[in-house]
């Protein structure tokens, strides 16, 4: 169990400050949803957590060690990152793509040891892609491709899993499949952080919601704490109805508020 912390993290993108003094402590075993309006800095925060963007100040700390001090391969073994809407350049077989998740362990996709082989099979099984092993990755549908890329991230078996809009552009069934996989992975002890735009999915699946606005954390807490009418109005600029029914918290966006 590795605690994953973000300490006073600031990131500048060119002259613009994208993130301002972010402090966040993420616990293993929980699914955290990162929400916020477009341009709030969600992707930048996730990339900084993955070590893909250099912070101007502060640290990302995994199990007491700043990730900036870790070797690239050690960091890659500890933190799996699933970028938004990724593709595959060549018609590689599906199992070959998933096996790329073993690269941080120094395992070559065409010479996987037993452990890597097991990890790849388990990852394919958990996203329901058994039987797809030899299919060319470029022949998959959007939903199948998203599941394959998620399986690639799972195959690393990293204690931290970061996913940037993993359900964007997916149909409702695939959205549920992907979020259930992420939730199950969290329950198995992984620290999972996912950027989500659908507030109802965030409310339903996340244990913890972080609302980011203009590069700052607006609120961080349970779905009930984070998804209030007042916060949605302030951060998203929407008039929303938040109700609690038999399906849990329900957010209905009613109308955009006039911009301030």
């Amino acid at each position: 169990m590795m605690p994953f912390e973000i300490r006073s993290l600031s990131v500048d993108l060119g002259a613009r400050r994208a993130l301002e003094s972010i402090d966040l402590s993420l616990e293993p075993g929980r699914l955290t949803a990162l929400i916020g309006p477009n341009g709030a800095g969600k992707t930048t925060l996730l990339r900084a957590m993955a070590g893909l963007v250099r912070p101007s100040a502060g640290d990302v700390v995994l199990d007491g060690t700043p990730t900036a001090l870790m070797r690239a391969s050690a960091r890659a073994r500890a933190i799996a990152y699933l970028p938004q809407g990724g593709g595959v350049a060549w018609p590689l077989p599906v199992e070959g793509v998933v096996a790329l998740g073993r690269l941080p362990h120094g395992e070559e996709p065409d010479r996987l040891p037993a452990e890597g082989r097991t990890a790849v099979e388990a990852a394919l099984r958990s996203v329901g892609l058994q039987g797809f092993e030899t299919r060319p990755a470029t022949s998959l549908s959007g939903g199948e491709r998203a599941r394959m890329l998620l399986a690639r991230a799972l195959a690393t078996q990293a204690p931290v899993l970061l996913a940037d809009e993993p359900v964007a552009a997916l149909d409702p069934r695939h959205q549920l499949i992907v979020l259930e996989v992420l939730k199950a992975r969290a329950r198995a002890g992984t620290t999972v952080v996912a950027i989500l735009h659908d507030l109802n999915l965030a409310a339903r699946f996340a244990d913890h919601i972080v609302l980011l606005d203009q590069g700052k954390i607006e609120t961080s807490g349970s779905p009930e704490e984070a998804l209030t009418k007042a916060r949605l109005a302030a951060s998203f600029g929407i008039q929303a109805r938040v109700s609690r029914g038999e399906d849990g918290l329900l957010v209905v966006a009613q109308s955009p508020l006039p911009s301030a």
Partner: peptide
């Protein structure tokens, strides 16, 4: 050669897999 494999998933993913 080994880095080219990771790169087939794009630059971001390759970097997250530890490829320079």
């Amino acid at each position: 050669a080994p880095g080219l494999r990771a790169l087939s998933l794009g630059e971001e993913t390759a970097r997250s897999l530890g490829t320079d």
